[in-house]
Measured scan of single mutants.
Amino acid sequence: SLTLTVRGEEAVRRWYKWAQAHNLEVEVETHGDEYVLHIK
């Protein structure tokens, strides 16, 4: 499992696509303009 902090929706989309390509689940938490992604 992997936890990432990114800024901006574009980065979130990029990681989301990456995770889907690897059959992984993604949980997204929003903290202001930062997003915490939990990839499992």
Rank of each mutant, 00 (worst) to 15 (best):
E29N: 05
W15E: 01
K17L: 12
S1L: 11
I39N: 00
G8R: 03
A19Q: 01
T30Q: 15
A11L: 10
K17D: 14
A11M: 10
L4S: 02
E9K: 12
E27A: 09
H31F: 13
L2W: 14
E27V: 14
L37F: 04
E27N: 09
H22P: 00
G32N: 06
Q20D: 07
G8K: 03
G32M: 05
Y35D: 01
H38C: 10
H38R: 12
T5V: 15
L2D: 04
R7S: 10
K40F: 14
W18S: 01
R14V: 07
V6Y: 01
V12C: 14
T30K: 15
L2V: 09
Y16I: 15
R7V: 12
N23D: 08
Q20T: 11
V36R: 07
L2Y: 09
G8T: 15
L24F: 13
A21P: 00
V26T: 03
W18V: 02
H31A: 09
V28W: 07
E34M: 14
E10K: 11
V26K: 00
E25D: 09
T5M: 10
H31V: 13
A19H: 01
K40T: 12
L4Q: 03
T3Q: 09
L2N: 04
R7P: 03
D33L: 07
A21T: 09
G32E: 07
L24Y: 14
Y16Q: 15
D33F: 06
T5E: 04
V36A: 02
E10Y: 06
K17A: 14
R7K: 13
E9N: 06
W18F: 06
G8A: 05
V26R: 00
E29I: 12
L24Q: 02
E9S: 08
Y16N: 05
E9F: 11
E34D: 08
H38Y: 11
V6R: 01
E27S: 13
T30F: 11
E34I: 15
V36S: 03
L24N: 01
L2T: 05
E29L: 09
E27H: 12
T30I: 15
H31T: 08
T5D: 02
Y16P: 01
L37G: 00
V12F: 15
L4D: 01
E34W: 15
V26H: 01
E25F: 12
V12K: 06
W18E: 02
L2K: 05
G8F: 05
W15Q: 00
E25S: 12
E10I: 08
E10L: 08
T5S: 06
L24S: 03
L37Y: 01
E27C: 15
V26N: 00
Y16R: 14
T30C: 14
A19M: 03
A19R: 00
T5K: 13
V28S: 03
A19Y: 02
T5I: 15
E34N: 11
H31E: 06
V36M: 06
Y16D: 03
A11F: 05
H31G: 04
A11G: 05
H38W: 07
A21G: 05
H38I: 13
L24P: 00
L4I: 15
D33K: 06
G32K: 05
I39S: 00
N23G: 15
Y35N: 03
V12A: 12
W18D: 01
V26F: 14
L2F: 15
N23M: 08
T3K: 10
A21Q: 13
Y16S: 08
G32V: 04
A11E: 13
L4Y: 03
E27L: 12
H22S: 03
A19N: 01
E25I: 13
I39V: 05
S1T: 14
L4K: 06
D33G: 09
Q20A: 12
L2I: 13
N23F: 10
H38G: 02
T30M: 14
T30D: 10
H31Y: 12
E9I: 15
E9D: 08
Y35A: 03
E29Q: 09
W15S: 01
H31D: 10
T3R: 12
R14C: 15
K40I: 10
D33M: 06
G8S: 15
L24G: 02
V12M: 15
A21Y: 12
A21R: 08
W18I: 04
